[in-house]
Design a protein around this nucleic acid. Sequence first.
DNA 1: CGATGACTTGACTGCTGTCAACGTGCGTGG
DNA 2: CCACGCACGTTGACAGCAGTCAAGTCATCG
Lengths: 258, 258
Amino acid sequence: MPTRKLESVVSLKDIRVACKACSLKEICLPVGIDKNDLESLDAIIDRKRPLTRGEHLFRVGDSFQSIYAVRSGSLKTYTTSESGQEQVMGFQLPGELVGLDAIAENHHPLAAKALETTSICEIPFTELESLSTKLDGLQHQLLRVMSQEIRDDEQNMVILGQKSAEQRLAAFLISISNRFRRRGFSATQFNLSMSRSDIGNYLGLALETVSRLFTRFQNEGLLHVDRKHIELLDREKLCAYSGAHCSQQQQPQKSSGR
Amino acid sequence: MPTRKLESVVSLKDIRVACKACSLKEICLPVGIDKNDLESLDAIIDRKRPLTRGEHLFRVGDSFQSIYAVRSGSLKTYTTSESGQEQVMGFQLPGELVGLDAIAENHHPLAAKALETTSICEIPFTELESLSTKLDGLQHQLLRVMSQEIRDDEQNMVILGQKSAEQRLAAFLISISNRFRRRGFSATQFNLSMSRSDIGNYLGLALETVSRLFTRFQNEGLLHVDRKHIELLDREKLCAYSGAHCSQQQQPQKSSGR
DNA sequence: CGATGACTTGACTGCTGTCAACGTGCGTGG
DNA sequence: CCACGCACGTTGACAGCAGTCAAGTCATCG
């Protein structure tokens, strides 16, 4: 019947949502791009079927064709060392780009895997690059995004280089919280799509340490944990624990990798 | 007399050496840029008087005007946390760029300080950006350099996240060695312009640990240390110690920060 | 030649990793 | 709908790597 048909058309439209209709356009690649120019950008972007949990967007060594933006869901990026040991490099939330580290060598140094059902926008790089020479706003935004990524990685180096386990987890939670807030979600209540093991690996800690710290933070009344669900009860104190000046929004908006 | 005058002209020329005459053009920003276009790039680059040891190129919070390339000497980049604790983010050797992390927010998140007498090329960013829209090779190279920087930072995250002290120092030495080699210097014999404390800070180790490891590596016949001078005696084994697959050139050419 | 800063070496402590056992929730299949 | 299995998470005991503190050595520079 017409009704069902209409619905299916609507959901199809959803999948093909253009940048200018996307709620993430204020934090994604289109930032600072002229409304008219946005259509040229839109034209090169490919929206694919969603990835299911555990599915790879790309793997280590895959040839570099595109960068990707997360539309919904989340990813983790990671490498596997020769000894088979995994290193999680970052987590990507909606509006964040992945694959920027592949430009240099034309293949992906990291793998990207969906932590949950995740929708992706694919942005073919050569087309993006040539478009960037035409739309000055786009080139600038691309450079800005990459620069921000470098900053975030620097931030992570500080965390890994000289913070205690407690400070690392606190900083991680504050960072996640800020990134959710920026996307219009609750800053005090959220689900962590990644496992304890992923968090520990990312922070340079054993998963047992992460688990113990969650318990301790909860006992101290800083937060409430229920499996993957986190509720921050005392953001102030958590900031203090993180050993960083995180007066409000100071935290990196996106502390992770690509 | 004419002779002396000629000499002084030569040395002046040295200081103003154009990219196309620079020995670093194969690894610096000009990579992949057409010979004719190189002059347009050259035209915007400003060569300043050398920095002396300890002098700052820029400080945290300085407004972002330019990115810089090291021509000779070396820099370290670092931040100071609210608690006054310093975190060294990277060391820059000739041909490497600094300041890319400042694009995002228009001010420098790190300070850059000369570790020895150091010559710098200043590249005003707005001019670089507008030139990049015209010279397609330049935009691509700029993106490549930034992408490489992200990769290097990722590499550092692996080192800080899951390597032992021994592996960290070994990986650091191999990385430095590779970077020197790439620049035409000896890969087995070099001077470390940074202090033990800087190395330790950069690697997330106490300076005492670094010192102990140098002693141990020397006792094991891996290298010879004399104050700042390092001679690698068994690069193979050092690679093995680093816990990475560094068969020849595999190592990141530039493992450091901006 | 003395002072200062950089480096080395030693002794001790503690944080965090490792190993191991146990608990919990979810999905699958009967 | 329930039982089972498995992956994920928690908790405990113990140990070791690397940090801290402290003393001593060495090199460089005024």
